[in-house]
């Protein structure tokens, strides 16, 4: 099968190196015993990992980020599923417009979105609140879920739902017992992708947080604007490992290639 030439092999290696290099550097820096950013590290030390524990504001921010990502991904999933079913399964006027609206957060520059959200939330007095953050994140990450769920819905055999209906199932039962299980890989994949996107969202978030709802990326950002110690490297490493663990878990459960590339041949 593998008939790649030397050139494309070299390209692949370079590409992977390019993608992985920053992570390797960050991991390396996080183990430095020194008080400044240094690569390669002059020794191996867990000093900056211990330092995380001495910074409760980082732990607090991480906790908020986790809660926020969980809430936003869930809200966005609940929005994306019915939208994907409507767009993917029926023909109606304004269908393309609906799809464009749902995908539009991808097209608008995030800085613009941030300013818009700031104005909008102030209007409702939700600025800096967890609810406000959740709503904004949900809007930003909905396109990611929608696309994965839409791909799953489009590949769906509509006649299975009809068969269930003819056997006496109501609409909700058809959704719960037939449609949802069939698109579940897409839904879970979309949820995870949305979770990760929300977890490291910075550009929009800086506009709308307040000190009590500071997320981890915002906390790290403000940290490096003041000092450049390797604390951000160790925090980053922890989040990278966390993301990796999440990916592995999903892969175990559903098969990652199936989620990101589409239905595989697994039975």
């Amino acid at each position: 099968m593998n008939r790649n030439g030397a050139f494309s092999k070299a390209f692949n290696i370079l590409f992977c190196a390019f993608m992985l290099a920053p992570i390797v550097v960050v991991l390396g820096v996080s183990f430095t015993p020194e008080g400044f950013l240094e690569f390669p590290p002059s020794g191996i030390s867990l000093r900056w990992y211990e330092a995380i524990l001495d910074n409760p504001d980082f732990i607090q921010a991480a906790w908020i980020s986790l809660q926020l990502a969980f809430a936003a991904a869930t809200v966005a999933t609940l929005l994306a599923i019915p939208a994907a079913l409507a767009i993917g399964q029926s023909r109606f006027r304004g269908r393309d417009a609906l799809q464009a609206i749902f995908l539009s957060p991808l097209m608008v520059p995030t800085v613009v979105l941030g300013i818009a959200f700031l104005r909008f939330l102030s209007l409702f007095g939700l600025n800096g609140t967890f609810a406000g953050l959740t709503a904004c994140h949900a809007i930003i990450i909905t396109p990611f879920i929608l696309r994965l769920v839409l791909a799953a819905v489009t590949g769906l055999d509509m006649s299975a739902a009809r068969a269930a209906e003819s056997l006496g199932a109501g609409r909700w039962t058809v959704f719960r017992r037939i449609t949802l299980p069939a698109i579940l890989p897409g839904v879970v994949g979309g949820w995870v992708l949305a979770f990760i996107t929300s977890f490291d969202e910075l550009t929009v978030t800086v506009f709308i947080v307040n000190p009590s709802t500071t997320t981890l990326p915002v906390r790290m950002f403000s940290h490096i604007t003041q000092t450049t110690d390797p604390l951000v490297a160790s925090v980053s490493s922890v989040t990278v490992i966390f993301s990796l663990a999440l990916m592995i878990l999903v892969d175990r459960l559903y098969g990652l290639d199936r989620l990101l590339i589409g239905e595989g041949k697994k039975a």
């Binding site: 006649s159 299975a160 009809r162 209906e165 003819s166 069939a182």
Partner: peptide
């Protein structure tokens, strides 16, 4: 409505519940 007609239907694609 379809779900109350109580008919047995075999679709061309079989439409089995794969899960």
């Amino acid at each position: 409505p379809a779900r109350e007609r109580g008919l047995g239907i075999v679709f061309q694609s079989y439409a089995l519940f794969l899960h």
